[in-house]
Structure formats: C-alpha cells, structure tokens
Computed example of a mutant assay.
Amino acid sequence: MENKKELRNWLDAFGLTHPLVIAGPCSAETEEQVLKIAHELKDTDATVLRAGIWKPRTRPGNFEGVGALGLKWLQKAKEETGMLTTTEVANPTHVDLALKHDIDILWIGARTTVSPFIVQEIADALKGTEKVVLVKNPVNPDLSLWLGAVERLYSSDIKNLGVIHRGFSTYEKTRYRNNPEWQIPIDLQTKFPDLPLILDPSHIAGNRTSIFDLCQTALDLNYDGLMVETHYDPDNAWSDAQQQITPATLVQYMKDLKIRKEISESQEFQTKLQNLRAMIDIADTQLLDVLSRRMKIADEIGKAKKDQNVAILQNQRWNEILGKMILEGEQNGLSEEFILRIFKAIHQESINHQKKVISE
C-alpha cells in the first residue's frame, strides 16, 4: 500500500455532515425483525443497515445465523427504506452470495483477520470489486496482522477499503469484553491516515452501558464512523443481547455525542497548547530518566541474586509492589487498569535486565 493516494475516499460519496453510522442487529433472526429494525432506523443518522447472516461463534451450540436466506431480507429492507446494507463474510462462498444479493458493504470479522490464508481467499474472490470492504482488527493485539489483511485486499485491486476497531481479546479481566487498546488503531491511522476508521463499541463493551462513552472516545480521537448493534428488543435478541441498544437509544446517543473540531484557529489556544505540550515533553524526559535509574537498580539486584544463586522472580515482593502502586495510583487519579499495565511492563523489563546480568 505504498501509494495510499489511490485509496478512494468512499465516505465523501455519502455527503454526510456527521460520522458514518452503521446500525442494526447482531444477527438477522427473522424477516419481520430485520424489516422492523430497518424502518425504525431509516429516518435516523444511520446510513447503513448491518445484520449478521453467518455468525462465527466461539463455541458450538450457539445461534450461528440464518445463512443465505437472510440476504434476501437485507435486500428487501434496502428496497423499502433506501438504507445501504452490510454483513460479515468469512469465506469466498459468502462473498459470492453477498455480491449476488447486492450487499453494499462487506466486512471481514476478527476471527477471519487472524488467518492470512482465508483473507487471501476472500481477497481473490473480491478482486477488483467496487464494493466497500471493511476489515475488523484481529482478535489478538497484532497490528501487523491487521495491516496485512488490508494490504492483501489492496493488492487485489480493491480501493474502497476501511477498518473497524472492535477491541482485542485478553486473558486478563477488564471492564470490557474486548480491551480497546486505543494505541493500536492510532498507530494504524498514523501509518495510513486516508484509511477510514470505524469503531464497533458493541463488541468492545460487551454491555450496553459503556457504548456511549466508547463512541465519544472514538469521536474525540477523530474516528470516521460507528458500528452499533441495534435491536428493537435487545434483551430477547438471539445473540449478544446484553450489548445491543434500541434504535431510540441510538437516536438519543447521536444527539448527545459531541463532534470535536480537528483544530482551532484561535491564537490563544495555539499558544496555550504549545506551552502545555512543552511541559509534556519535559515530563516525558523526566519519566525516561526515572525509568533508567530504576533499571540500573535492577541491574544491581541481579548481581546480588547472582552472587547468592537466588531466583529472579520473587512473587511475594512483586505482589506487594503491585498492591501498593494500585492504591497510590488511585490516590493520584490513576486507574487500576493503567497502573497494572505500566508496572507489569516495568516488572518485565526489570526481569529482562536481571536475566542479562545473571547470564553474563
């Protein structure tokens, strides 16, 4: 993707004055359900109707979608409401059926993005298409896999591309179903600023109570759109009931969300921002100095352990440090999640330093 300018800015064609909104149920359940939701969304900010037709489930026995029959329901919804349609495709057969039913936007799911072989098969099936193709991040926090999937599609002469950030799986318990890892999509956007970036707050949150805040964060970070799972009866949805909201709630969210300006021309603002950024630069340098001193102490600890043939990892000491830092962090307005991330990284670097000393 060296010539990024060849990417078409397909979002401009919609002529929207607000971020793109993709909404609809996690799963297409019945024709009546799809049409009812579509009609409740048609006069809202939602431009695209989404519905899962084929549902890759983590474990067997859960509802896995109605299959190709649901494509006809999406077609009918488009005819009746004028909304564009989108669904997930996970193999070339899905691609062929979706194209035959004139689905406007196809997205590649997180479980598919992790497999370069399957992504390549889908890219070959879509070769040269004018349809918009969106790529969800892989389930694991791997930027290279995400970029690789986009590059495979681009190499198949697919120019209407975009990405969906739906969060990343983690073995650690967090407040989210899938941890957002905001830095990863920021890194992606830095590499390819012309690639539209859409947030899927439903899969990040795993519950409807966090969706609004995630949407606002995305807008604060200049995301281009939102994909929100929407159902007229969320509690009785056949899949992911807890993370869906009603169309009426979506309407209210769009009224309440604040769209930030990318920049302000105010000279006073520019001066203040420049001064604050200078302060950040100084603080960052001080942080590096402190971390460097800490690692030099870790080197000395490594030497002492080597002399006495003592193991590097001391679990009791590590747990004491972590507990103390979490409490002190909270007193200083820092979240437990942030403290855990920072000090686990520091601890790992300390272990690396001690290993190097002991192995010399």
Rank of each mutant, 00 (worst) to 15 (best):
L7G: 04
L7M: 11
L11S: 01
G15S: 07
I22R: 01
G24D: 01
A28R: 03
Q33A: 15
L35C: 00
E40I: 03
K42M: 00
D45I: 08
L49Y: 00
A51R: 00
G52S: 07
W54L: 05
R57Q: 11
P60A: 05
A68P: 09
L69D: 14
L69G: 14
L74H: 00
L74P: 01
K76F: 00
G82D: 05
L84T: 03
T86H: 00
A90R: 08
A90Q: 13
V95H: 04
V95A: 08
V95S: 07
L97A: 14
H101G: 01
D102W: 04
D104C: 03
D104H: 06
I105L: 04
L106V: 02
R111G: 14
S115H: 08
I118A: 05
I122V: 02
I122H: 03
A123W: 00
L126S: 01
K127M: 06
G128K: 11
K131R: 15
V132E: 03
N137C: 12
P138L: 13
P138E: 10
P138C: 08
V139A: 12
D142L: 10
S144Y: 12
S144C: 09
A149L: 07
V150H: 08
D157M: 09
I158Y: 04
K159P: 01
I164W: 04
R166V: 10
R166K: 11
G167A: 09
S169V: 14
T170I: 05
Y176M: 03
R177K: 07
N178H: 12
N179W: 08
P180T: 00
I186K: 14
L197R: 07
I198K: 00
S202T: 08
I204S: 03
T209V: 14
D213R: 06
D213N: 15
C215I: 02
A218F: 08
D220H: 10
L226I: 04
M227H: 03
H231E: 04
Y232H: 14
D233F: 06
D235K: 15
D235Y: 06
A237V: 09
A241D: 06
Q243D: 03
I245A: 00
T246G: 11
I259Q: 09
R260W: 09
I263Y: 12
I263E: 12
Q267S: 09
F269N: 11
F269I: 13
T271F: 15
Q274E: 11
N275Q: 13
A278M: 11
A278K: 11
D281L: 13
D281I: 08
A283D: 12
D289S: 13
R293P: 00
R294K: 07
D299P: 01
E300A: 15
E300P: 02
K303F: 08
K305R: 13
K305Q: 15
K305P: 01
K306R: 12
Q314E: 14
Q316L: 12
R317E: 15
R317A: 14
W318C: 09
N319I: 02
I321G: 04
L322K: 15
M325D: 06
M325P: 01
I326H: 06
N332G: 06
S335E: 10
E336C: 07
E337H: 09
F338L: 14
L340D: 00
L340H: 12
I346F: 05
Q348A: 13
E349W: 07
S350Q: 05
K355M: 10
V357M: 08
